[in-house]
Design a protein around this nucleic acid. Structure first.
Length: 508
RNA sequence: GCCGCGGUGGUCAAGGGGUUAAGACGCCUCCCUUUCACGGAGGAAUCACGGGUUCGAAUCCCGUACGUGGUACCA
């Protein structure tokens, strides 16, 4: 058997959504698992929908996720060009070949004629008539017209398409790597357009021609392609390449809260559906990405991998390396899976907790900088990250969870302090400030010892004091242990915050 | 309408003739912590329905309903 070669073939018309990323991911995992090549080519067949910058966007997403292609328009390779628009000539050749061999035909029907046909043949039982064997003789094509008429039309450069001629009464079946044997009646499949009037191929011709040219061995795509698989199968056969046909795997769909996951669901339910922010230049509409929402790529890849795949164990947390190791195509599910944002956040939280501070530092630094907290000593940043990462679900949480390490609070949870505040506490805190000021070795242990000894001396419950102390340092009832916070912000700042707190709470 | 595909708690899922039907997310209770998390211990909640086959069906078969995708000179 030849080397495993898989391909991801996005259409550069919009953002890369969850389903798309998962399709790439399974492609990638399969290729890496079998030591094969992961190829990315671009399906820019439809010029009218091509969006500027989308191709670069796709590669940015792949890079973020850690899936670098072995061959692509960006890195090149032996099967260049990797853009469909640059391979145009070859498709026409194959389409003409099919016509010559009697497997396809020219169709001269105009848009209006097609519309009329759909209108005329529409019945309550058949609301959307297809251009198939039952009606093709009634249309204007090289099957229904005489040779002379066809020649004349061609010589006059009459706009035309090339359609596949689906055979009658055959059962065509194939074995899908995920769902086993799937079969179709050819009579029920319509005569799909292979080559459009503008000479660009449709997806149907293009996938087959490109997969053949690039020697693809395993083709992964979404389940929405299953109904057109018989067309592709027939093409492989008609072009005489049957023995080179890749094995197919139709991946289950990712569903949203109400049916299929759509771009709109993001805005509607408050979660991202794209890998990275996507700005649609036509509508100027911004669709939020997982990256910008504060997801770690490790978590994003992980959560997508286990949505529709499970290796049979209880393991849920996988790195890319572990995924490559454990991935198995026959463990991919057949049913669609509903996307659960709560679970997605859980994955991110887990990945933040298990990542070390150095991994997180650049991201955290960026988030703090966005909130005007800059010039942090690297070591100090690492210390703080380790202190708060357990309580951060999204990267953005690092700001709220750690800002008090870098800035003196400006707002205080007075409601929490007020019921506990009295002159005795004020006195205690004033003395505490002095005592801490005199402390030469400002460590967690010493701070705590000073704090508790003074409380015993004054006969005050430590707990009540701790809450006040915390609010003075943090501004609210949150964060890691108070004494750790005190040590981290240092003696001068601790004393300063106590003094400031006394003023504020005493006035209140 | 027609065609394809699907089905285990609310969600993701293991299991594929005999199980007390794993586990995770979420939810609830308690412990830890006089904060919030993390961590720990528990709890509520499930095999779409109807027929077969079988001593025995969540598991196999057939129907029905439901869901989902396709039915474009979009991918």
């Amino acid at each position: 058997m030849s080397k495993v070669r898989v391909r991801f073939a996005p259409s550069p018309t919009g953002g890369l959504h969850l389903g798309g990323v998962r399709t790439v991911l399974f492609n990638y995992l399969f290729a890496k698992k079998h030591g094969g090549d992961f190829i990315v080519r671009i399906e820019d067949t439809d010029q009218t929908r091509f969006v500027e910058g989308a191709e670069q966007y796709i590669f940015d997403c792949l890079k973020w996720c850690g899936m670098e292609p072995d061959e692509s328009p960006l890195v090149g390779g032996p099967h260049a060009p990797y853009r469909q628009s640059e391979r145009k000539e070859t498709y026409r050749k194959y389409a003409e070949q099919l016509v010559k061999d009697g497997f396809a035909y020219y169709a001269f029907d105009t848009k209006e004629e097609l519309e009329k046909m759909r209108e005329d043949f529409k019945t309550p039982e058949n609301p959307s008539p297809q251009y198939d064997q039952t009606i093709r003789q009634k249309m204007r094509n090289s099957l229904s017209l005489s040779d002379e008429e066809v020649q004349t039309l061609l010589q006059q450069n009459t706009p035309h398409v090339i359609r596949i001629k689906m055979p009658e009464g055959e059962t065509i079946s194939f074995t899908d790597m995920i769902r086993g044997e799937v079969s179709f009646e050819t009579s029920l499949v319509d005569d799909k357009v292979l080559l459009k009037a503008d000479s660009m191929p449709t997806y149907h011709l293009a996938v087959v021609a490109d997969d053949y040219a690039m020697q693809i061995t395993h083709a992964f795509r979404g389940e929405e392609w299953l109904p057109s698989a018989p067309v592709h199968l027939m093409l492989w056969k008609y072009l005489g390449w049957e023995k080179d046909m890749p094995q197919w795997a139709h991946l289950p769909l990712i569903l949203g809260p109400n049916g299929k996951l759509s771009k709109r669901d993001g805005a509607k339910y408050g979660f991202p559906v794209f890998a990275m922010n996507w700005l649609d230049q036509k509508s100027n509409e911004l669709t939020e990405g997982f990256k910008e929402r504060g997801f770690l790529p490790e978590a994003f890849v992980n959560l997508l991998a286990v949505l529709g795949w499970n290796d049979g164990t209880e393991k849920e947390l996988y790195s890319m390396e572990e995924l490559i190791e454990s991935f198995s195509i026959d463990k991919v599910h057949v049913a669609g899976a509903k996307f659960d944002f709560e679970k997605a956040k859980w994955f991110n939280h887990e990945w933040i907790m298990r990542s070390d501070a150095a991994r997180l530092a650049p991201d955290v630094k960026e988030i703090l900088a966005a909130n005007n907290i800059i010039n942090i000593e690297p070591d100090r940043l690492l210390t703080v990250i380790n202190l708060v990462k357990d309580r951060c679900t999204l990267l953005q949480d690092f700001y709220a969870q750690s800002s008090f390490f870098f800035e003196t609070p400006t707002v205080y949870d007075e409601a929490a302090v007020k019921p506990k505040w009295d002159d005795l506490k004020k006195e205690y805190l004033e003395e505490l400030a002095k005592k801490l000021q005199a402390e030469n070795n400002f460590t967690v242990e010493n701070i705590e010892l000073a704090f508790k000894n003074l409380a015993t001396e004054k006969n005050i419950k430590v707990g009540e004091l701790q809450m006040i102390f915390r609010v003075m340092l943090v501004g609210s009832k949150m964060g890691p242990g108070v004494f750790v916070i005190a040590e981290t912000i240092g003696k001068a700042e601790t004393v300063l915050r106590i003094e400031k707190g006394i003023k504020i709470f005493h006035a209140a």
